[in-house]
Structure formats: C-alpha cells, structure tokens
Design a protein around this nucleic acid. Structure first.
Lengths: 152, 152
DNA sequence: TTGAAAATGAAAGTCGTTTTCAATTGGCGA
DNA sequence: TCGCCAATTGAAAACGACTTTCATTTTCAA
C-alpha cells in the first residue's frame, strides 16, 4: 500500500495506512462514520476529517467508489473486477450484491445509441429482502392514515 | 387534481394546486429549488417548506419519485408507464433518459434468485454525453504528478 | 356557519459533507 | 544524515440540502 501511495505521489502516514487497512478489512458498503468508528477503535486520535479525506483518496485511486442509495448516506464500495448491482432492502437497509453481467450489454448498447461514453454504472434495485417480505406492508401508501403510522 | 387529492384525504389549497401544476408543467428531473423558483414566479408568497412538502406529497401519491444521481441534490421524476434509466453527464450535468425494457428481465430474474421483492429500479449510467466527449479529459485522474505524464 | 383538522410560511434545527487553518510530519535533495 | 517545504493532520467551523417546529391561516364536512 505504501508503494502504491508513493508511486502515485502521495505520502504514507500512520493514519493513512490505518485508514486504508480498516477500509479493506471492513466489508463492503462502508459509510464514513462506520469507517471512522473502526479506525477509532485502533487509534482514537485520528480525526473525522482525516478519515473522510482518505476515503476520498481511496476513491481517487480507483480502489473504491461511492454508492448512493438515496438515504442520505454515502457508502463506499470497493471496486471489483466485475461490475455489480445492489438490492437495497427498504426495511432492514441491507445491501445485497448481484451480478449485472447480463444487463451490461444492453446498457452499453443503449449508451452507444445516445453517443454517450459511459464510465460508471449504478444499478440499484429497491424493495424487500427475503427476511423482510410481507404481504400487508403499509409503508408505501399514499393515504392520510398511513402518514401517521409512518411518523411513529 | 383536486379530485385526486380529496379522494386520498388531502385538502386542496391554492398553493398546492399551483405547486402540482408547476411540477407537471416543468420537465422531468426537477429539484426542490427549481420547482420553488418556478412557483415563486407565479406566486412569490409560497414558502419553501410548502413546496418541499408538496413535492413529497406528489411522491406519496405515486405521481413522481426521487432520483439520486449522487451529486447531493434530490431530483423528482414524474413516474412514467415504462421504467427508464438515466445517462448522467459528469461534465454538463445533463440527464438523459433511455429505455430499460431490455434489462428489466435480467433484473427481475436476479431478484428472484435472491428471493428479493423489487419495487423500484434505479439505473444510472455516468459518463460523458456526445457534447462533452473528449479524449484528453483531465478530471478523473488519480495521480498527483502523473497528470502530466498521462496527457503526453 | 362553524369547529376540528390540515396546510401554510418563516425560521430554526438536523445531519452528512466539506473547508479552513494552524500545527505537525514525511520524504526528497543537499 | 539534516533541513526544508509541501503534504497531511485534527479540531472546529462552514456549508448546504433536507426536515421540523410552531403560531397562524385555511379548508371542508357536519
């Protein structure tokens, strides 16, 4: 890692190494705060902004990319050799990955038609995972009474 | 529109009608502020929060849905009979729509394998549109001093 | 008409993200 | 190895989009 940083012109610092290590030791889809907590376990002196900046750096280095599922929290996903999509459970907030190889062809083709030069794909499918499926869901209704439930 | 609101248990107010009208008269992918500006042109007394709340209401009624392209701004897209994806130009921020009929099958199948019950799809392809394509782009580089090398 | 409930507008609050700035540190050249 | 200078750090504040609060106004069913 130290090597990669040097060759790219960045300095290696203890904080940076720690943050990088923590990021890669954690699972995927890490938020800044999740990473921050992890880092603090090992070195409570590391600052919030340092974690944030290094997470950005990890993205700049092409080692991860942002994932935005629309809940206001940016997560960071290690880049993988093959692109993948996400199933996002509206209930338990779980994020599952699935292979999108079968849809890439169609996407690339569509892009070609638009003379669009793609360099990133975000395929997010929202719904309910196997644990949270139910038939009498009440949280996507447009009626007044459902509003009140929601607030609770 | 007044009818729809009533039947769903919501009241009809001048502000609400105006906001709804403006939303549907504007193109797609409207942000709260864009809608707010439009509304203010016709009635400067309407408040920011009223616009925001009614945009949420439009979503609750199933007439629109949020689109998140990761730039921190939530846009609202009229729901259309057929699902569509977006091409988001990193340079000019343009948002183009494309038909995703050809990929839906694969997505639904993948969801089925995961026992996932989908109810929303977000297919965002990022890159550069035909107007912004160029070969010597310099805004996605990960190297500090290697910028120069790469261009040469 | 009238009152309960909903909607409004201004302002303030929330919260994740980003920047500022002074102090510290890494690492290249001498 | 040493010293310099730019990169990095940490605390705090700034930022900005989103959301809530609350007093007031308005809608609409009875």
């Amino acid at each position: 890692m130290k090597e990669l940083l040097r060759t790219k012109g960045f300095k290696s610092t203890p904080q940076r190494e720690l943050i990088f290590d923590c990021f890669f030791s954690l699972g995927k889809h890490v938020s800044v705060d999740e990473l921050y907590q992890k880092v603090r376990e090992l070195d409570p002196s590391v600052g919030h902004s340092t974690v944030w900046r290094n997470l950005k750096l990890i993205c700049q280095l092409g080692l991860a990319e942002e994932v935005n599922i629309g809940d206001g929290i940016t997560r960071y996903d290690r880049t993988t050799p093959k692109p993948h999509g996400h199933f996002f459970c509206r209930n338990c907030k779980k994020l599952l990955e699935f292979d999108v190889g079968s849809v890439m062809g169609a996407l690339v083709e569509a892009a070609h038609e638009f003379e669009f030069e793609p360099d990133g794909y975000k395929i997010e499918v929202q719904g309910y995972c196997s644990d949270c499926r139910q038939d009498d869901r009440t949280n996507d209704v447009a009626t007044r009474s459902a509003n009140d439930e929601r607030k609770a």
